[in-house]
């Protein structure tokens, strides 16, 4: 097995892991019972999924051109910086709207 095919296997694994995580995030979005629980799927699984995809694409273009191609890192960086912010804003909006919560949820959200 030559070296380039070894890199190819790693890229393929990263792409598969990334899209599987994105799929799991979407499954969580459909399956979980109330809004606050649904919030967990996209903020974590999908973000990491795209992160893995981006690292795979970075490896691919670096190996193709022979010099490091790092600019895809910006997308991952941006997503990791913004995912908590949008999750926070959405949670605040949901608490403001007083959305229905799963009855077994312990603790109370605050009034906005």
């Amino acid at each position: 097995m030559s070296e380039s095919s070894w890199v190819e296997w790693v890229i393929a694994a990263l792409l598969l892991i990334g899209s599987l995580f994105a799929l799991i995030g979407s499954i969580g979005l459909v399956k979980l019972p109330d809004f606050f629980m649904r919030l967990h799927g996209p903020t974590k699984a999908t973000t990491l999924g795209v992160g893995a995809l981006v690292v795979g694409s970075m490896l691919y273009f670096s190996q193709k051109s022979g010099e490091p191609s790092l600019h895809e890192l910006l997308i991952t960086l941006f997503l990791f910086l913004t995912a908590p912010v949008s999750a926070h804003m959405l949670a605040k909006a949901a608490m403001h709207e007083k959305l229905r919560r799963e009855p077994r949820t312990r603790g109370e959200p605050w009034d906005q």
């Binding site: 899209s19 994105a22 919030l39 795209v50 694409s57 997503l79 909006a93 709207e97």
Partner: peptide, 26 residues
Amino acid sequence: PDLPDRILAMDTLYINGIAVIMLFGL
């Protein structure tokens, strides 16, 4: 069923869109 759910779905939709575009570029 509520607006925040739809916003969250849009949010996920665009992140998944990024993934599709990266894959298409590859």
